[in-house]
Write a protein that binds this DNA or RNA. Structure first.
Lengths: 145, 145
DNA sequence: GCTTGACCTCAACTTAGCTTGAGGTTGCAT
DNA sequence: ATGCAACCTCAAGCTAAGTTGAGGTCAAGC
């Protein structure tokens, strides 16, 4: 391990599997911060590997960048999450997963009851009314699940 | 029931819960077809209520419009799906749901094993490697699950 | 000292599934 | 015959999470 622990962006990309452009994008979003060389090149701390890994994992678990931002913002001064933070955060993530599973199971059961029925009557069809929370919410694309 | 069964777009919107603009969009995508009055206004068949309902239900089950298009294209000459078609189509939908549930359960279990670990070490973390199929796929936004 | 790969910024593009707005026409009831 | 809601067509905009490209700079090895 060399004297200074500062990583250029390409190195960080190789270490995390992210693309360089994605890391720059995250910096723009405020999810990571970077020091700069005199020549304006980014230099990251080793801890940022961990921070980005956290982002990656949280993403896989279905959190949006906005939600991740919020989770990270809950930590004092951009600290990288440690085991204790992780424990706290993972609790709420677990709940999300449970909810999703429950919702899918409900759908599956409705579907089973519906096969061969073919009614497709809105208002009456259990499937159609199975899970009201996927309704509309504001503008933009309808929530892509 | 009046003599002609042709519905103007607003009526169809009210009957299905879709917005007028969404129906026009679906027509553009080729998911529904419309007759036109001499004054160029759309007139839909009653059966299109059912067709649109099918689209709505399929969407809730996680199919994209492209997939729905495909499913509907499998039917001769833009026929509205009946009970038999529905049975066939619902089989593959059920599989999708099962797969999603399985994948979430795997994640939940990994998460449980991970709480308190906090390692967040890529390459080693079971959570990170839990479900490789959520990888990248071409351009555009990463698949939003 | 020079080449070359890694880096920089900024703007525009991507996909999905629509919505919104401008500017104009239709069709039904009175 | 007229008023007015409902309809029409386009074009542009929205969100999310980045990618791609143009045009230019940096830094490290030879």
């Amino acid at each position: 391990m060399k004297a200074n622990d500062l990583l250029p962006i390409g190195e960080l990309a190789r270490r995390t599997g992210l693309s360089v452009s994605a890391i720059r994008f995250y910096e723009e979003r405020g999810l990571v911060e970077a020091l700069r060389t005199s020549g304006n090149q980014r230099r990251f701390l080793r801890g940022d590997i961990r921070r980005l890994s956290f982002i990656l994992i949280a993403q896989r678990l279905g959190l949006s960048l906005a939600e991740i931002e919020e989770a990270l913002a809950g930590l004092p001064q951009g600290r990288t999450p440690n085991a204790a933070d992780w424990k706290r955060i993972s609790g709420s993530i677990r709940k999300r997963i449970e909810d999703q599973i429950a919702s899918l199971e409900k759908m599956r059961d409705s579907l089973d009851g519906c096969i061969g029925c073919g009614c497709l009557s809105l208002k009456k069809c259990a499937l159609y009314n199975a899970d009201d929370k996927w309704g509309e919410s504001g503008t933009g694309p309808r929530v892509l699940r």
